[in-house]
Design a protein around this nucleic acid. Structure first.
Length: 721
DNA sequence: GATGGTTGGG
């Protein structure tokens, strides 16, 4: 087989008779270029700027951009023209080597080659955010100095470069000053606002552009449709769609994708699907938009059907599907999908890990969360504030306070970071520390928002700091300029009620300026359970059931209260009413993570493969604990069953099954972590305390509202929950 | 020898 060089050599004789331009047109490889190069030297035409440029352009544009060779050829040119310098700069930009582009530019200045109107667009094209920040303004100075600031191409490149660096004011400054504006100038400006998520500005600009009679292109439409998606502005979106039809713009893939995404984001799945099914070719973006559309409208199973039908999936489509499960609180399925994603060898990015960490936080899946943390470090996933905050949130919600604080201390902190740590400390029973964090947050000049205030009140509630809570609530408007909303009133009712100030809590409800919702009344009802006030409980329950007639938790809680207060007649009536209305108790459900798998137990569950062993273990634990003084606490049992059955129903509570499973399947000394969907009952709480003592195990249970860290026979909640 | 575009987040 002949080598490329000898092939080229066979063509050499004809070189003599052909014009140089034809030679370049037929040039197929760097080897052939060498022949042509030698030929041009021999003919003495290397001084021609055109020939110089052709020679250097070839390696820039072929074989993936051989800039090393281009540079060698460039160095042989004694007096390079601006043409060939631009070619070199363009070559570096194309290969995403903006710094080399800048060096080339500086070199040409040193060699007294003046830039022309092509130089800056080529140079800026390769810029990323960091290079735009580092060199942008200085190079803007050069643009002015050399007099290209009125060239529309240069202006467009400048606007784009500034928007890339996040300096939107500079971008719009250049845009406003631009004497000559074309449709691309408008496009890059709109794209700039899209980039920083100022979608209303994008929409405004589009309307202004239309009013000025500038004729939009398909790029303009794609940009403004994207803004409409994010704004969920169906009206403007439809209007744009009409323009597209009126202007007879040829539909292309990107534009159709933008339309699909807009309709999907606005909940118009029928229209979105119609476009999707009638397009000539679809790509991964079209499919992902459809999936997101279904997921956003709550039809996650339909979204999954489309996801499964995709011929290829990228990390965005995986993340979109995972996020679809998160939206409907189907966290286990989110994690299962993530495992499949790993099997498919698709690398997660920072978006994916935030979704997974969120799922871990909800499930209390600490092991997986830790694994993700390691993964982020090892694979150098960008640790932006979203990722950092998701990590902090995950560690606290999984009960690992130390690690949560460690991440918090190491990262750049924004409002959300502080809020996550304040809430995290609060739910783990570190009320004082949470308040201290809040002071530090104020010292760091970070303004709290409504959620931060919920965290602060929550901290006071879980540690019984009634006066501090009262004072903070009063300071919300005056000191922080935050009007308390219904959630804050709910916190106050919770705070006062738990501490036994039931009357005061009720007064808060009566005097609050917004209509109390079921959460507010629920806080009062919960307080009534703790303080055994059946009368107030009836009042609270009545109000909740007016708002939410099907709220079964209210019935159950009221039953508990009647049982505790020994109001057996009321209990019987309520039970009858529940049967008549078909109200069923929400089954208690506990999750425990073992060896990276999340196991789920519901009360009385026998579906686990190791069910038999688990029940045997539980029996053994109970008898061991009875030696240590454990007697079942039946006060919260209200079922119409005999004493013995009562015990066995408490005995089958999901957290007990999970604890038994935990003791069964982990080594001595390993912390047992459980997440429960309901509030822990008194008996399970008592049992967990004893397990922590008798088995020398730390047991951490996260219930509906807070954490219980059981150590050496006592609980971090100090039996106050 | 030129510039602009579509999908997923706490």
């Amino acid at each position: 087989m002949m080598s490329m060089a000898s092939q080229a050599a066979t063509h050499l004789p004809s070189l003599e008779n052909l014009p140089v331009t034809t030679l370049f047109e037929n040039c197929k490889s760097v080897d052939q270029l060498r022949q042509i190069h030698a030929h041009t030297i021999k003919k003495g035409i290397m001084s021609s700027p055109l020939v110089q440029n052709k020679i250097v352009a070839f390696p820039c544009e072929h074989e993936g951009g051989n800039m090393l060779y281009a540079r060698r050829l460039f160095d042989e040119i004694p007096e390079p023209s601006v043409f060939v310098c631009n070619t070199m700069i363009e070559g570096y930009s194309r290969l995403n080597r903006p710094k080399d582009g800048v060096s080339m530019y500086l070199e040409m200045l040193r060699r007294n080659v003046k830039p022309n109107d092509y130089t800056f667009p080529f140079l800026f094209k390769g810029f990323k955010r960091d290079t735009a920040l580092a060199y942008g303004q200085e190079l803007h100075g050069h643009v002015v100095k050399y007099g290209f600031d009125s060239n529309v191409f240069v202006q467009n490149a400048l606007v784009n470069m500034y928007s890339l660096s996040g300096m939107i004011d500079m971008a719009s400054g250049v845009f406003d000053m631009s004497c000559e504006r074309d449709v691309v100038t408008w496009n890059v400006m709109i794209s700039g606002y899209n980039r920083i998520k100022h979608f209303d500005e994008s929409r405004k600009l589009f309307k202004a552009m239309m009013e000025k009679g500038v004729f939009p292109t398909s790029v303009t439409f794609a940009l403004v449709l994207s803004a409409c998606s994010k704004l969920k502005d169906l009206d403007t979106g439809k209007q744009v769609h009409r323009y597209i039809k009126e202007c007879k713009i040829q539909p292309n893939l990107v534009l159709e994708n933008a339309l699909i995404a807009m309709y999907a984001a606005c909940g118009e799945m029928t229209v979105s699907l119609d476009i999707f099914e009638n397009m000539k070719t679809s790509d991964v973006i079209s499919w992902t938009s459809i999936i997101t559309g279904f997921a956003n409208s709550g039809q996650v199973d339909l979204a999954r059907k489309y996801f499964d039908r995709m011929s290829e999936r990228d990390y965005v489509s995986w993340t979109a599907m995972i996020d679809g499960y998160l939206r409907v609180n189907r966290f286990k399925e989110a994690l299962e999908l993530f495992r499949k994603m790993q099997t498919s060898k698709i690398k997660p990015d920072e978006f994916t890990v935030v979704s997974i960490l969120t799922a871990c936080a909800h499930l209390g899946a600490l092991e997986l969360g830790e694994w993700i943390n390691t993964y982020i470090d090892r694979h150098k996933i960008k640790k932006d504030s979203f990722v950092g905050n998701a990590l902090v949130d995950m560690y606290f919600k999984c009960g690992n306070v130390e690690k949560g604080l460690q991440i918090f201390n190491e990262m750049q902190r924004d409002k959300f970071t502080w809020t996550a740590v304040i809430v995290g400390l609060a739910i783990n029973g570190y009320g004082e520390e949470a308040l201290d964090m809040f002071s530090q947050m104020l010292e760091a000049s970070i303004m709290p928002d409504e959620i931060t205030c919920v965290g602060v009140l929550c901290a006071c509630t879980h540690t019984g700091m009634v006066d501090k809570g009262r004072r903070f609530f009063a300071s919300m408007i005056n000191q922080h300029g935050i009007q308390p909303n219904v959630a804050h009133y709910g916190c106050m009712v919770d705070l006062l009620g738990r501490a036994g100030h039931l009357q005061e809590a009720y007064e808060v409800i009566q005097n609050m300026p917004v209509k109390p919702n079921s959460v507010v009344w629920g806080a009062l009802l919960g307080a009534c359970r703790i303080h055994k006030d059946a009368e107030m409980a009836e009042l609270a329950a009545k109000n909740i059931l007016e708002l939410e007639p099907g709220n079964s938790a209210v019935y159950v809680l009221l039953c508990n209260i009647y049982a505790t207060c020994n109001k057996l007649e009321s209990l019987r009536e309520l039970r009858e009413m529940m049967l008549k209305r078909g109200i069923k108790k929400i089954p208690g459900c506990s999750l425990i993570e073992m060896n990276g798998m999340v196991h789920e137990f519901v009360a009385g569950d026998q579906s686990h493969p190791q069910s038999k062993e688990i029940y045997l273990k539980l029996e053994k634990i109970t008898s061991n604990l009875k030696f240590a003084g454990y007697t079942p606490d039946m006060s919260e049992v209200f079922l119409d069953v005999g004493e013995e059955d009562k015990e066995s129903s408490v005995y089958r509570h999901s957290e007990k099954l999970a604890i038994a499973f935990g003791l069964l399947s982990s080594k001595p000394g390993v912390t047992i972590r459980i997440v429960k969907n309901l509030r822990m009952c008194v008996d399970c709480h008592r049992m967990a305390k004893l397990v922590s003592k008798v088995y020398s195990r730390e047991v951490i249970v996260r219930d509906r509202t807070r954490f219980h860290h059981f150590r050496h026979g006592s609980c971090s909640c100090k039996d106050y929950w």
